[in-house]
């Protein structure tokens, strides 16, 4: 019994830590790619491209780590994640395109930024996780 216990809990913990590490690396590489050209390497295009390639590489590792984490979850945990992802994807597509339309039709005076979409998807995902966790308590 304890072997299974240690396997499941230890593996989940390991997968979570791995995802946190790659997410941290991705955020740092994003900051480097965003601020490096202005503050570190004076708009050197080669270094900017390298920084962006590094950011994409970190992002791919983060995606793979997230997939590993979800594959290692039990069936209820996976269901909760998939339900939340379905909602956040739908809201992201519908909300993101509607926001873009508000911009292209000049209903709003400012530009539609991609950061809005990221925040919308993140908030919707977190709400989805919270609601589904409560449902199965």
């Amino acid at each position: 019994m304890s072997a299974t216990k240690n396997d499941f809990k230890a593996q989940t913990h390991k997968n979570t830590v791995r995802l946190a590490v790659w997410t941290g690396a991705w955020v740092v590489s994003m900051a480097l790619a965003a601020f490096g050209p202005k503050f570190v390497w004076n708009e050197n295009k080669t270094l900017s491209v390298l920084a962006i390639l590094l950011n994409v590489s970190m992002g791919i590792m983060m995606i793979l780590a997230n997939r590993t984490l979800i594959k290692g979850m039990d069936e209820l945990q996976r269901k909760i994640q998939i339900d939340a992802m379905a909602i956040s994807l739908g809201v992201g597509v519908v909300g993101g395109l509607a926001y873009s339309l508000l911009d292209t039709t000049n209903v709003i005076p400012w530009d539609a930024e991609i950061s809005f979409l990221v925040v919308l998807i993140s908030v919707t995902y977190m709400i989805g996780i919270f609601v589904n966790q409560k449902r199965y308590l």
């Binding site: 019994m1 299974t4 216990k5 499941f8 809990k9 039990d74 069936e75 209820l76 199965y136 308590l137």
Partner: peptide, 28 residues
């Protein structure tokens, strides 16, 4: 917790099955 450990799932999953809120897969 003991049962969850024995089955290799979370305690939340055992609780949800017991309460009839979640139906387990055939393998489980």
């Amino acid at each position: 917790g003991d049962l969850a450990d024995a089955l290799g799932v979370s305690r939340q999953t055992v609780n949800a099955i017991e309460k009839g809120k979640f139906d387990p897969s055939l393998p489980l």
